[in-house]
Amino acid sequence: MSPPDSPTQLELSLPKLAGRRLPRFAVIQFPGSNCDQDCVRALRDDCGYAAEYVWHQESSLAGFDAMVVPGGFSYGDYLRCGAMARHSPVMRAVSEAAASGVPVIGICNGFQILCEAGLLPGALIRNRSLHFVCAPVTLRVESVESLFTSQCYAGQLLTLPVAHGEGCFHADPDTLRTLEENHQVLLRYVDPLTGESTEASNPNGSVSNIAGICNAERNVFGLMPHPDRATHARLGSEDGKMIFAAMAEHVAGVAAKR
């Protein structure tokens, strides 16, 4: 499927991208993925990029500029969330792409898969409340030094929805210290009014209210909230676009240097 003919709002607002080849996103599909269509629709229709499904049995991701590991319940969340998916053939290609500097974003179940695959430190465990949480949350941008948050300003508050039962981020104290020292925590759950990270604003019990982290190289990002479900005013927020736009800008910059 080709991208929409008419320029989208984002293309109009981002003249720097005009005239260049559209960034091409791979959206990985596992058995049990359920946000793959949200991601492709958000990327194509709301952001105006090229996006294609890639089945988990594929072993090559050649020709793609960026990877999305979408949300859902890959393999029914059997054994542990993401434990089966991380052994899929396509994950080897995702790891290779990540190692070569390609932007990789894991959303919700995708975050769990990237942690299981060792592309991100830590793990996601059952929500402290044991309840599945499904609600918009407020996030504070903790660092703009990444391929994902470069379009935001430091301290900016974003509204994105969460929908998960196992989104409580866990890491041992040493890992946590490293994450904080390197500014790898990109998003934190905060109070919408004060912008402070409080216990009440933490939907799942994550350590230090962590909602999203990147790797040390800053090209792999995992987050529990869904930017893919916040790309149109009709969805209640367009803040998710900023994250995809940052990835696209990076890709365009890389292409321009070639």
């Binding site: 465990i125 059952r126 402290r128 409340s129 044991l130 019990g205």
Partner: peptide
């Protein structure tokens, strides 16, 4: 088994 240092909300419930 969950490690001793890891929160186990299921066990608490």
């Amino acid at each position: 088994m969950p490690k001793a240092a890891v929160l186990d909300p299921q066990g608490v419930a």
